[in-house]
């Protein structure tokens, strides 16, 4: 089973996770920029974070045979801190990079005017740079937030097939399906979405426009949930081709719209590695 995790925060994960992900079939992933447990207070820490998503993290992933791309954005929660607003001025330089395959995560946290402004500005940047967009939907008041998200996306003029609306559930999947945007589901150990509900949603909405991710980060989460969904799909009677479509082809099609997805030679580490660094002299 070949897996592309379209949304996972590897910066928060260990090399053990990379090893287990590779063993489970993960060969590529996208790490979108998001908030951390601790709020940031200056654009400089964002620049360092973005540099990590483009430098160190892809290098680390490559040691374990996994291709790493990223999405770059100012997330909605930190958009509310005026000290972080200058991050918007950094974005054009980062959106020009080869490893950046989308703008994201953008969207709403509490649906404030500041979030409106930053969301709309970044949709415009996506249009300008020819990049697809990964949209986070709020954890609280999700249905209202998703409805408002879809209105803003529509007003932006971006074609719906360039927009992935994520963290959906039974309440929000239908309206996103009607909008023509891609449907994203974050399968978590306890919250958001679980494996069995995911199977029911795949039965209801089909495999054509659905992406499944682990969204694993610094909270309680599991980077192998993508594989668990694949196994559950097969057990439920979906074909191997269905699994390939959801776990590989759909993410490749969506992020491939950037023209920057590089999956050639996807198992070759970027460089040999040893010593006081991640491999510590032992081959993975």
């Amino acid at each position: 089973m070949r897996i592309f995790d379209p949304h996972i925060h590897m910066t928060s994960r260990t090399t053990d996770d990379y090893r287990r992900m590779y063993d489970a079939g993960v060969r590529a992933l996208v790490e979108p920029a998001f908030w951390l447990g601790q709020p940031r207070t200056s654009p400089g820490t964002f620049a360092d974070y973005f540099d990590g998503l483009l430098g160190w993290e892809p290098y680390r992933a490559a040691q374990y045979g996994i291709r790493h791309h990223c999405a770059i954005a100012l997330n909605p929660k930190e958009a509310n801190d005026p000290r972080c607003r200058p991050v918007l001025d950094l974005l054009p330089r980062y959106l020009a990079k080869d490893g950046v395959v989308a703008v994201g995560e953008v969207g709403y946290d509490e649906m404030t005017p500041a979030e409106d402004e930053v969301f709309q500005a970044q949709l415009a940047l996506a249009a300008e740079h020819g990049l697809p967009v990964l949209v986070h939907t709020p954890h609280r008041d999700k249905a209202a937030g998703t409805r408002r998200t879809l209105e803003v996306v529509k007003d932006s003029g971006l074609p719906p097939e360039r927009v992935l609306v994520d963290h959906l559930n039974e309440m929000t999947a239908g309206m996103v399906a009607d909008s023509g945007c891609w449907l994203g589901f974050s399968v978590y150990p306890d919250t958001k979405m679980d494996v069995h509900r995911m199977i029911a949603l795949l039965r209801q909405y089909g495999t054509e426009r659905i992406l499944v991710n682990s969204a694993a980060d610094w909270g309680h989460s599991d980077p192998l949930k993508t594989r668990a969904v694949g196994d559950a799909m097969l057990a439920d009677g979906f074909t191997e081709a269905d699994v390939e479509q959801v776990l590989w082809t759909n993410p490749v099609t969506f992020y491939g719209q950037s023209g920057r997805l590089d999956l050639a030679d996807d198992a070759a580490p970027a460089a040999d590695y040893a010593g006081n660094t991640i491999k510590r002299g032992v081959a993975p």
Binding site: A47, D51, L54, Y59, K97, D98, G99
Partner: peptide, 9 residues
């Protein structure tokens, strides 16, 4: 260099 990805650096 400092705003570059690895290939740019």
């Amino acid at each position: 260099y400092t705003h570059g990805d690895t290939a740019e650096r």
